[in-house]
Design a protein around this nucleic acid. Structure first.
Length: 499
RNA sequence: GAGCCGUUAGCUCAGUCGGUAGAGCACCGGCCUUUUAAGCCGGGUGUCGCAGGUUCGAGCCCUGCACGGCUCACCA
């Protein structure tokens, strides 16, 4: 046999179709496109037009069955030689390959086995597929190929298509929820001369005309709060943040974030809003509960528990670790060491406490839970509690041990903010390369003009989508996650020979 | 960044003790009017991730590299 590669076979078919039969396999526009799922609802006898990718072909001499699929579903087609005539029939038999996208016109009927089928009277190509599809039964399994060639994943794995459709619906629903509550959607700079609003290493780029370095934002926070200073009552932004850090099943260097700010609100208002939002999403998107995520069964049900940071230790350790056991550096260090933990950060009180929280408290949380009132040290943009200035009006929402949201009553006092910025810059000088490099003086000036009391929120969209779709890897909910580029060889493009 | 694991046909995978490359699907040729992972007959299409090394002989053993996965570290 001469044809060694399927791709070559298909290119030869393409040439024969074009040269010998003058057929244009790269089709043209259609007046109407009905999703296959909609066609499936119609009665037998209805004449329908359908388009889809051919996923299977079962030929029986003068009768050939096929399966076509689109994003919404699959349907069987049947082509009979006497109906189509030998020209159109043989064209399908010999030249329509699995992977081709075709248009068919015909009547709906049920086969002897009861399968809804289109009895095709007419068909044509929408486009030719020149490469063989992955195997029909197992689909495309290889995790790397699924991310690298997402189109193949979407073609082969209906579950993947469903996940990304749901992602889009989640984002639409979040917008609707916020619009309905009077939030105004805004866009703030992705390219920032000074980065802030979070602690992370940034990507650096350069603007040629101005000859300045710029940073890709690690958060939109400081710009959004300037808008509250300017008089916007409620704003939100949904978009990409960029953090120049490691990649794992919870982190992608570019990720989607929704931040919102509401004037004259505080973190308790935001907590109520988050609770409402989660319930709204689960209800409107009809997500069945419990949601199985990261090996846990999660129920989204109001009210979400609200546990102060200080009390969380006792709460999740059955009283074995209490706040008064860790409220000084010396005591916290002892508990830390008794737990067999190893300190990789500067050995100060807050780091011992945070490490204990991360390893003992956080993993125990299953259902949506607000941890509230964080230590001041780890919250440089949050407002202090009136009755306890060592803590701030802040909460984080955890689900299945994962942080999904972070919010606080915003710090309004420019003097306090400047001091905290200075501490950040000092930490930076001490070697913390995730602390702020530079004080955002304009932001301090904005605070001097006056930030009204404001509640702010950030929600990690990718993680939220992971949760609502039950996916354990962020790569399953980002269409094109960052991968190290792989060279495509000439052979892969079929140009190794004399072509 | 560290440890472990993986990389064999387009895809999903097998490959024993180191003896010269396998299956299913897909594909090619043929038969077939109710199949649906259609079936039957015939056909194997390969840079065994890459580069070295050991060996009479390497998919298999050794070294380095590349890409990926998991765990850890990092990520308030």
């Amino acid at each position: 046999m001469r044809d060694v590669k399927e791709r070559d076979v298909r290119y030869e078919k393409l040439e024969r179709l074009e040269k010998d039969r003058d057929i244009d396999v790269f089709g043209h526009r259609l007046d109407k496109v009905v999703p296959i799922a909609e066609i499936r609802k119609l009665e037998d006898g209805t004449e329908v037009e359908a388009v889809g990718r051919l996923h299977a072909k079962r030929a029986h001499g003068k009768l050939t069955f096929g399966d076509i699929r689109d994003w919404s579903g699959r349907i069987q087609i049947a082509l009979e030689k006497p109906v189509l005539g030998s020209e159109a029939y043989n064209l399908f038999r010999k030249y329509a390959d699995i992977g081709d996208t075709i248009w068919v016109k015909g009547e709906l009927f049920h086969t002897q086995r009861g399968e809804l089928t289109i009895a095709v009277k007419e068909w044509k190509w929408m486009t030719k597929s020149l490469r063989p599809l992955p195997e029909k039964w197992h689909g495309l399994r290889d995790v790397e190929l699924r991310s690298r060639h997402r189109y193949l994943d979407l073609i082969m794995n209906p579950d993947s298509m469903k996940t990304f459709m749901l992602r889009s619906q989640i984002i639409t629903a979040i917008r609707k929820f916020l619009y309905d509550r009077g939030f105004i959607e805004v866009e703030t700079p992705v390219l920032q001369p000074i980065y802030g609003g979070a602690s992370a290493r940034p990507f650096i780029t350069h603007h040629n005309a101005l000859d300045i370095d710029l940073y890709l934002r690690i958060a939109p926070e400081l710009y959004l709060k300037r808008l509250i200073v300017g008089g916007f009552p409620k704003v939100f932004e949904m978009g990409k943040n960029f953090r120049n850090e490691g990649i794992d099943s919870m982190h992608n260097p570019e990720f989607s974030m929704m931040e919102l700010y509401q004037a004259y609100a505080d973190y308790t208002d935001i907590m109520n809003l988050v609770e409402d939002l989660f319930v709204y999403l689960v209800e409107t998107l009809e997500i069945p509960q419990p949601i199985k995520w990261l090996g846990k069964e999660v129920y989204v049900k109001k009210p979400f528990p609200r546990i102060p940071y200080k009390e969380a230790f006792a709460h999740f350790t059955d009283g074995k670790i209490t706040w008064d056991m860790i409220d000084t550096e010396e005591k916290a260090k002892k508990v830390f060491e008794d737990l067999g933990l190893e300190m990789k950060k500067p050995p100060v009180w807050i780091n011992y406490v945070q490490e204990i929280f991360d390893s003992i408290v956080q993993p125990k949380i299953v259902n949506p839970t607000f941890i509230i009132d964080y230590p001041l040290e780890i919250s440089p943009l949050a407002k202090k509690k009136k009755d306890d200035p060592n803590f701030v009006e802040r909460f984080e929402l955890f689900v299945a041990g994962v942080e999904l949201a972070n919010a606080f009553s915003e710090l309004q006092d420019p003097r306090d903010q400047l001091e905290r910025f200075k501490k950040q810059v000092e930490a930076r000088r001490q070697g913390d390369d995730e602390a702020m490099a530079e004080i955002d003086e304009d932001y301090i000036i904005a605070l001097e003009y006056g930030l009204p009391p404001t509640g702010g929120l950030g929600v990690g969209i990718d993680r939220l989508v992971m949760f609502l779709t039950g996916k354990d890897s962020i790569r399953d909910v980002i269409l094109f996650p960052l991968l190290r580029p792989k060279k495509i060889s000439d052979a892969d493009l079929g140009e190794s020979e004399e072509e």
